[in-house]
Design a protein around this nucleic acid. Structure first.
Lengths: 216, 216
DNA sequence: CGGCGATGTAACGCTTCGGTTATTTAACGC
DNA sequence: GCGTTAAATAACCGAAGCGTTACATCGCCG
């Protein structure tokens, strides 16, 4: 990707400018949503000119679509790198739950982008081509773990992989996206270190008790 | 509140106007978020004048705060009307899970308002006085059910009522707030009647398996 | 080395939006 | 009925905000 001439410093670099715009846009969209973000702010943050945004991305909405697509392909690609196949089913599932939690925690912009997209009834994601390919692989992964768990005799039968997938995401996603109102409603700092540790432990237990035949 | 003269029809009715503004604002804020909503649109929808909004509510933000507060007191008051005390612990918990699901389903604006507030880091809810009172009652309610379940010998001990509360909300909330992107990612209509029935069943099972000592 | 497309800058235009001012009109006590 | 106060309207203002236009400059290839 860096090309055959990495030593040659280019003053004008189309690729680098686009990347800076994407990174800046992701941050801005995550901070303020699609409607709340300002194109001028994105340009400034990207150390680029507003004209460049329209040159490379055509419109604010198309830029948002690109950012959103990248966010989805990024998380799906990280999931695939987990290499869960060589683990026993229970360990694989626990690792997936842990991964999901940590990914949301480390990449809070993913959550905000998805929230913003749902406020717009997924009109941008609808136009995306790649989304189906990467999504199917995730479902297949969970489906595979479930099947393996049944063969091993540790998981219950006939669990819908989609429902499980949604639940794994839900228990981490909700906690983190609503951390501000949640900290007020429940009168405790949900982002304190011990609170976070307590939550991931609770989440693992929730999922394992859901799928496992026997619970200690 | 209606006063001693309910039969007398008043052309100018401060109370009614304020109520119309609140209802209109709730719809608009739910549809577009705080940033995406337009004060003019709220005024039009309320069949009032923009000046009236500023007269009664001072600013767009304070109007949002009032709408948000009302949304919270509404759901908490509905929860209290459930009368779960006379039920056995397991039935009470199942009823609460069903209620939460149905409430989010019937009042989608609650979810969008909370999302919008979290995008703003709960700056409006922070200023609210009533929120703590109504929230504490919810936690006490779940805490009571858990205690009763332990006495009855059906629930496990030492389950954190706050974590359980969060999880009950999460598994319904996430499914519904992300129904648009979810329907694309999972390639099925998450809002189809059978899909909704499947989900509530899955959610009840998730919660009961989490707290119950023995699962069939 | 010269021209041409790709990369970049700056300033502007037209609309929208939150909030205000000026003005009108209904209700109600006296 | 009449004057005062509260309720309501409409026209307006300044600031943003998205997107464009006009203009400059770099790099590359013939």
């Amino acid at each position: 990707m860096t090309g055959p001439t990495p030593a040659k410093p280019r003053v004008r670099d189309a690729e680098a400018t686009q990347k800076r715009i994407m990174i800046a846009a992701k941050k801005e969209f995550a901070r303020s949503g699609l409607g709340g973000s300002r194109v001028d702010d994105i340009a400034e943050r990207a150390k680029a000119n507003k004209r460049m945004i329209y040159h490379y991305f055509e419109s604010k909405e198309l830029l948002f679509q690109r950012v959103l697509e990248e966010a989805y392909t990024d998380i799906r690609s990280a999931e695939r790198k987990l290499e869960l196949d060589h683990l026993d089913a229970k360990s694989a599932l626990e690792k997936l739950v842990r991964f999901t939690w940590k990914y949301y925690l480390d990449n809070p912009e993913f959550i905000t982008l998805v929230n913003s997209e749902n406020l717009h009834k997924a009109k941008h994601l609808k136009k995306s081509e790649v989304i189906h390919v990467v999504s199917r692989r995730l479902i297949d992964m969970v489906s595979g773990i479930l099947d393996r768990g049944v063969s091993e005799g540790v998981f219950r039968e006939n669990i819908d992989p989609v429902q499980l997938n949604i639940t794994i995401a839900a228990i981490s996603y909700y906690y983190l996206t609503n951390r501000f109102t949640g900290s007020i409603v429940f009168e405790r700092d949900l982002m304190a270190t011990e609170a976070l540790e307590q939550r991931i432990a609770f989440n693992i237990e929730t999922i394992l008790r859901m799928v496992c035949k026997i619970n200690d």
